[in-house]
Design a protein around this nucleic acid. Structure first.
Lengths: 232, 232
DNA sequence: AAAACTAATATTGTTAACAATGAAATTCTG
DNA sequence: CAGAATTTCATTGTTAACAATATTAGTTTT
């Protein structure tokens, strides 16, 4: 079950692979905030022993993507307003610099990859493939970090976009997708011009715009709870 | 954050506590790079079951502070030159911004804390208490992050200063401590002046100066290996 | 004596059983 | 019938035994 296409040599830690799977599932909105992650179910779904699941859940918790409650288990994190603000603050502090760095280091091939990314994103919008659109818009940011070429920062961005996906799932207006692809488009032109400063500025604006399309003013997460109860 | 070193309010995850202990031991240079972390020994030292140790080692590995080898166990990470450069690059990208943020948010009490920190650091230097000096100079950066008030970034800084301690342990000249307290002193004046921009600039210079006092030119980590073997 | 092979030991990795806790269902009571 | 109490069930948490692997020590051979 685990030796599939995106899998590499399994000397890479099994736990890392599990974490990646859960991350992806969250980014694609298949695991909504608050969803219970039962050890047995996850283990069966991924074809992996319970102990591996257990250890992976700890990793996920340390990345703020899962909440652990003693004797009750693991749940996909339901970020509070404060946590959500912290995620965006961290992104705004970090991603513009990463973007500036990426511009200085982007090869022609990298820019082509970004171009392809944008095309896919555009296509997904046309096709109405919401899931793909969400995934791609998040991964655009991840690709930027990879181009910047710093593993520590890449890992951080991966955590941040995953948590952002949870945040949008809770506080996002219904129809609004993760990112406006227009913004990504502008970013790419800055890459073509090798204008790192402009790219960084654009990233700040982009993140602010995402943030502004959220509705934090409610004050009660309980409302969301009720909705999810009724949806059963 | 914690009251005492032998803290045992166990509603916080036990694994987090274990990770913190190892972090601190590494920062204080009690656990040198390459040191074997046997599960049994660690468990006995901390009075904790093997499974908790096991899970904690995974967390430490995901933070780049421990290297795991299949069927061979866990070892305190011995950062390669490339990894070391990544750590410093990440610090330079992140910490100046964190510092700028900290300046805008520092209360008088926060500044007093920093002042106290510097005094302690100075005193440790006078007393020749090398271990305390090392710990305090690292924790100065951590305190800055705490003042900035973003948990995500604080956690990142904690990871980065721990890894920096490993790097200095390998590539640092013998007598050179972690930071020049002069730099910290200047930073504090920028805090007093509420000059975030200057503080950020100072932080960049400070990190560069730490980086420049390392000797990366060797090319062979093996030389370090031999030394550590002979030291037994 | 050095190298290679083999045996012994210790450590890691995995599994399964069991205990502890929380959630759910049923029964009892007002 | 509503609500509290109790029992049942499912899930998590822990422990211990066992298997697999690497390291060490010892032995043999050249």
């Amino acid at each position: 079950m685990k030796q599939s296409s995106t899998d590499q040599i399994d000397h890479e830690l099994l736990e890392d692979w599990i974490v990646e799977q859960v991350f992806d599932a969250i980014i694609e909105r298949q695991l909504p905030p608050g969803h219970k992650l039962s050890e047995a179910a996850l283990g069966k779904a991924l074809g992996v022993g319970r102990m591996h699941i257990r250890r992976s859940l700890l990793l996920l918790a340390s990345r703020g993507v899962v909440d652990l409650y003693a004797n009750r288990g693991a749940f996909v994190s339901k970020p509070s307003v404060e946590e959500a603000q912290e995620v965006f603050e961290a992104r705004i502090e970090v991603e513009p610099n990463i973007t500036r760095l990426a511009v200085t280091r982007a090869s022609k091939k990298d820019i082509a990859t970004l171009r392809q990314h944008l095309n896919d994103e555009h296509q997904a919008h046309i096709d109405g493939d919401r899931r793909a659109a969400i995934r791609l818009s998040g991964q655009f940011h991840l690709t930027l970090a990879e181009i910047a070429g710093n593993e520590i920062l890449t890992k951080l961005v991966r955590e941040l976009i995953t948590r952002t996906s949870l945040i949008i799932g809770i506080y996002g207006s219904a129809g609004v997708s993760n990112c406006h692809s227009d913004d990504h488009e502008k970013l790419l032109t800055a890459f073509n011009d090798k204008d790192g400063e402009r790219a960084a500025q654009l990233m700040v604006k982009h993140l602010h715009s995402i943030q502004q399309h959220l509705s934090f003013q409610t004050g009660e997460n309980e409302g969301v709870d009720l909705l999810s109860v009724f949806s059963k």
